[in-house]
């Protein structure tokens, strides 16, 4: 565990907290993409299958990971519940039209081709890594559709982007301190994911400067 990894995880927690706070205080999930939340749920539930096979008290790190995994899974499920049940009437279904089935299919095909070992566990893990790298796209798509620039949804995306950036620093750190090699799958997808956020930041700043609506290319 290094400071970048811990900082990244904490930002991830903050982003989830922000999201839930926004929904609870405004009694609305306007501007939020249910499709992105569903994708994260799929990502977490395919990646964290090891929860069933790992003893949480095996080590301090395992314990920490277990707590975080349960937190991510439960908060993700709760967010979907809020959006689909309690605040369903505020959900912007008309604009949240990104076709996630294509993302899921593409991630599945890539995972079947690129994985570290030919086991169900490893293929699902690779699938979750591929899918996570593009899971934010429906949210960016929705933001673009509604043209909202100044709301808490952008803070949520900023936190997620910051979390991904810190994870890259964490990988650089681990590369030199632990001599980790052959992590191409996680590193490659993680970098793609961070670039998507960086691209969003770029257009966000641009639209703020010009005082216009957000326009992603």
């Amino acid at each position: 565990m290094n400071i970048f990894r811990l900082g990244g995880d904490m930002l991830h927690v903050v982003s989830i907290f922000l999201l839930l706070l926004k929904i609870q205080t405004s009694h609305s999930c306007a501007g939020l993409s249910l499709k992105t939340q569903i994708l994260y749920m799929v990502v977490f539930s395919t990646r964290y299958l090891d929860l069933f096979f790992t003893k949480p008290w095996h080590s301090a790190l395992t314990f920490y990971n277990t707590i975080m995994k349960i937190l991510f899974l439960s908060s993700s499920a709760y967010t979907i519940y809020l959006m689909q049940k309690r605040y369903k009437h505020t959900y912007d279904k008309v604009h949240d039209t990104f076709r996630i089935q294509y993302l899921i299919a593409a991630a599945a095909v890539l995972a079947l081709i690129f994985h570290l070992r030919l086991t169900v566990f490893e293929i699902l893990w690779a699938f979750s890594v591929f899918l996570e790298s593009v899971a934010i796209l429906p949210q960016l798509f929705l933001l673009q559709e509604t043209g909202e620039v100044e709301n808490i949804t952008s803070h949520y995306i900023f936190c997620l982007g910051g979390y991904r950036t810190l994870y890259i620093f964490n990988w650089v750190w681990r590369y030199f301190t632990e001599h980790r090699r052959n992590q191409w799958l996680a590193w490659g997808c993680g970098t793609v994911q961070t670039l998507i956020y960086a691209d969003f930041f770029y257009y966000y700043i641009l639209s703020r400067k010009q005082g216009k609506k957000l326009r992603l290319p």
Partner: peptide, 10 residues
């Protein structure tokens, strides 16, 4: 360490 993926990360 595991099979090569960073399984100790989230």
């Amino acid at each position: 360490a595991s099979s090569g993926g960073i399984k100790d990360e989230l």
